[in-house]
Design a protein around this nucleic acid. Structure first.
Lengths: 342, 342
DNA sequence: TCCGAACGCGCACACGTGTGCACAACACTT
DNA sequence: AAGTGTTGTGCACACGTGTGCGCGTTCGGA
C-alpha cells in the first residue's frame, strides 16, 4: 500500500483546508465555483485516488460483502458467485472471498476474519455449521444470508436462500414414473446431509405416492472423501441390482460420473438405464448422452441472496427465499421399453 | 458495520489507557502479567473483534489482494482462483474479487476500485488490456501480476505468469504426428488473441517441421459472441474438409463441444477423427470419449502468481514465470488406420 | 445606513488502532 | 545515600476522511 496523495496534499497546493477539498470533491453545495474547479483539476492532475479505508473508518461501513464458500473451483458455486458479484458491483460494493472447505472450524475462522475486516454482511455458501456455531453467529450481529444451507434459522439477522430440494426430487420421480420406470435407484452425497435428505425424500415419497413399492427403490451413497464425479463413477460401476432401469442422482457431477461408469460397464444409457441429474451444469448439455436434469437457477440464487442481504443491511427484514427447480429433459432418460420390464 | 467494542471500551472497563490494551493484546513485552491477564479476559468476555480497517489505516497496508477476473463461473479460472486463495489464506491475506468481462473499460474500472480500497497488490487474470492502459497502470505504482495475459511487460512492478502456449501447441503436434495423422485442423478462439496465436503457431510450426504440408492444416475460429463450448459444437458440425483426421482445440471447452458436434454429425471420435484439447478441466476425464488434452497446472498457476506478487509487494523483484504444460493421453486420440489414409 | 439572511470557508473533532517518547516507580549496585 | 538500570504505563500523535458548528464576508431590502 504505497503512500499516495491525500486531500491534505491537495489542500496544501490549493491553499485551502482539507475540509474544503473534501466538500468540493463530494459535490457539496456552498463551495464557490472557482475553488471547486481548481480543486477538481488539481486532484486529477496529482493523480488523487480516494482512500476507501479511511472512508470506511469514518462512515462506519465498508461497502464490502464477505463470501464464504466451500469450493470456488466447483462450477456450480462459480455461477452462484457470479450472481452475487453482479448485484454487488451494481450496488457499488466489493466481494471479499474466503474459501473454507467442508469444515466447520475453517468456516468459522473465515467468518471471523471477515468480521475483523468489518464487512457489511456475509453470504455463506453451502454451510456445514451446526446449531452451536449458529448461536455463536447470531450473537455476533452481522447480517448473514446462507445459500443452500443444510439448516434453517430463527434469528432475524440470519436468513437463507435455498432451492426447494424436496420439490426437485418429486419432479424427478414424476418424470421417471411418467416414462414407465418402476424400479429405480438414488445416488446420494452424504457430504450435504440436509439437501441430500430432502431430494431423496421428495423422490421416494413421490414414487411411493405413484404406487412404486419401497423395496424397488435402491439407495446408494458415495464415499465422503472423494469428489462427486468420482463417486458417481464408482456407484454406477458397483450398482448390481437387477431390474433397476433408472437412476436419480443428487447432482450433475455424480450423474456425469455415473454416465462414464455405466459406459465402462457396457450398460447403455438411456436404453438400458435412464439417468437424471440435478443442477444443470454448463457441461450437462454436452455430455453423452446429453443429461436430463433438474435445473437450478444458479445465478438467480446468488442474486437473490445478495438482494436479501442488502435489505437486511438496510435494517429491513426479509423472509427466507425458496426458489423452484425445473425439469430439463434431454437424452439420458427415455421411456421404459416393454421388453425390459421385470 | 454495526458499532462494536473497541480497545477504548476495554480500557475504560480495565481502568487503563487504550495504549496498554493495545500492547497487551499484541503480546508486547513490558506489560505486567496481571494487567495483561485481566485485559485478555475482559476482551474475550466483551466479545472484542479487532478492527482491521483501523489497523490498515494505521499500518498503511491492507493485507488484501485484488483479483480481477473475466469470468468467475469458468471452471478453469475457478481452479486458478483456488490456487490464489490458498496462498493468500496461509499468508494471512484476503482476496477482493472483481469480475470484469472481456472488456478493457470494465477491467480498468475494476482495477481503479481495488486501488481505492488500497489493496497491497493486484492479480489480473486473462487480461485484455492494450498498451496505453498498461502504461497508465505502470504509473499507478501498484504491484501487479498478470496470469495468462495476452501481452508482456517491461515495468518492474508489472509481472506475468503464463503457460508456455507455444510449447503446448508443439506437444499436441508431436502427439498427432506420432499417431500418423497428416491432415489436421485447429479450432481457435479469437477472444484470446495472444494465447490463441501462440498455441496455433506452436502447433503449425511443429507440424511443418515434421513434414506436414501447410495446405493440409485447416484453421477455424469460433464466433466471438458465443461460449467456447457452443463454438466447438458449431465448428465441428461445420467442418467440411475431406481427409481431416485430427483436430487440436484451443481449449477443453471447445474440445468438449466438438465431441458433441461430431457425434451429432455421426462422425465417430476417435475412429474417424481424433480430438485433442487444452487445459485438462475436471470434466475432461469423464467426457465420451475421455479427452486427450494438454494439461495446464491450474492451481500452480494461481499459487505462483500469488507468490510472485508477495515478493513484489515485499520490495524484491521477480522474473516472469513460464510454466510448462504436459500431454495427457486418454481415448479421444488414436493412431490413424491405414485404411483411412487419404 | 443598518440589519438579517445567505454564502464560503476553517476549526476541531470523530472513527479505531499502533507507537515514539517521557515519566514514575522500583530494584540493584557502588 | 546516591546513582544507574529496568519495568510498567500514559500522553500525544499519526493514518485519511467526513461533518457540526461557528465565524467572517457579502448581499439585499427597508
Amino acid at each position: 500500500m504505497a503512500r499516495r496523495v491525500s486531500i491534505m496534499d491537495i489542500a496544501a497546493r490549493a491553499g485551502v483546508s482539507h475540509t474544503t477539498v473534501s466538500r468540493a470533491l463530494r459535490g457539496h453545495t456552498r463551495i464557490s465555483a472557482v475553488v471547486r474547479g481548481r480543486i477538481i483539476e488539481l486532484a486529477d492532475q496529482m493523480g488523487y485516488v480516494p482512500n476507501a479505508i479511511a472512508q470506511s473508518l469514518q462512515q462506519q461501513q465498508s461497502c464490502t460483502i464477505g463470501v464464504v464458500i466451500s469450493d470456488i473451483a466447483d462450477p456450480f458455486w462459480g455461477e452462484v458467485v457470479k450472481g452475487i458479484d453482479d448485484v454487488c458491483t451494481s450496488n457499488g460494493q466489493s466481494v471479499l472471498l474466503h474459501a473454507a472447505a467442508h469444515d466447520e472450524k475453517l468456516q468459522i475462522t473465515a467468518i471471523r476474519r471477515l468480521q475483523q475486516r468489518r464487512v457489511d454482511g456475509i453470504i455463506v455458501v453451502d454451510s456445514q455449521l451446526g446449531p452451536s456455531e449458529i448461536r455463536q453467529l447470531e450473537a455476533s450481529g452481522s447480517p448473514m444470508v446462507f445459500i443452500n444451507s443444510q439448516r434453517t434459522f430463527e434469528s432475524s439477522s440470519l436468513r437463507s436462500v435455498t432451492i426447494d430440494n424436496y420439490a426437485g426430487g418429486a419432479i424427478a420421480a414424476d418424470h421417471l414414473v411418467a416414462l414407465g420406470h418402476h424400479k429405480v435407484a438414488y445416488f446420494g452425497s452424504p457430504k450435504r446431509p440436509g439437501s441430500n435428505l430432502k431430494r431423496s425424500l421428495g423422490f421416494i415419497d413421490t414414487l411411493v405416492a405413484h404406487g412404486v413399492q419401497r423395496s424397488r427403490i435402491v439407495q446408494n451413497e458415495c464415499a465422503t472423501d472423494i469428489a462427486d464425479i468420482d463417486g458417481g463413477y464408482t456407484m454406477a460401476q458397483a450398482l448390481n441390482e437387477p431390474g433397476v432401469t433408472a437412476v436419480f442422482c443428487y447432482n450433475d457431477a455424480i450423474a456425469l460420473g455415473a454416465l462414464a461408469g455405466f459406459r465402462a460397464n457396457g450398460v447403455a444409457v438411456p436404453h438400458k438405464i435412464s439417468v437424471v441429474g440435478f443442477d444443470d451444469l454448463a457441461m450437462a448439455r454436452y455430455s453423452w448422452p446429453p443429461l436430463t436434469t433438474i435445473a437450478q437457477p444458479k445465478e438467480l440464487l446468488g442474486q437473490t441472496a445478495m438482494h436479501n442481504l442488502a435489505t437486511l443491511i438496510g435494517g429491513a427484514s426479509v423472509t427466507d427465499a425458496v426458489l423452484v427447480p425445473s425439469l430439463l429433459i434431454r437424452d439420458s432418460s427415455t421411456p421404459l421399453l416393454k421388453g425390459l420390464r421385470s
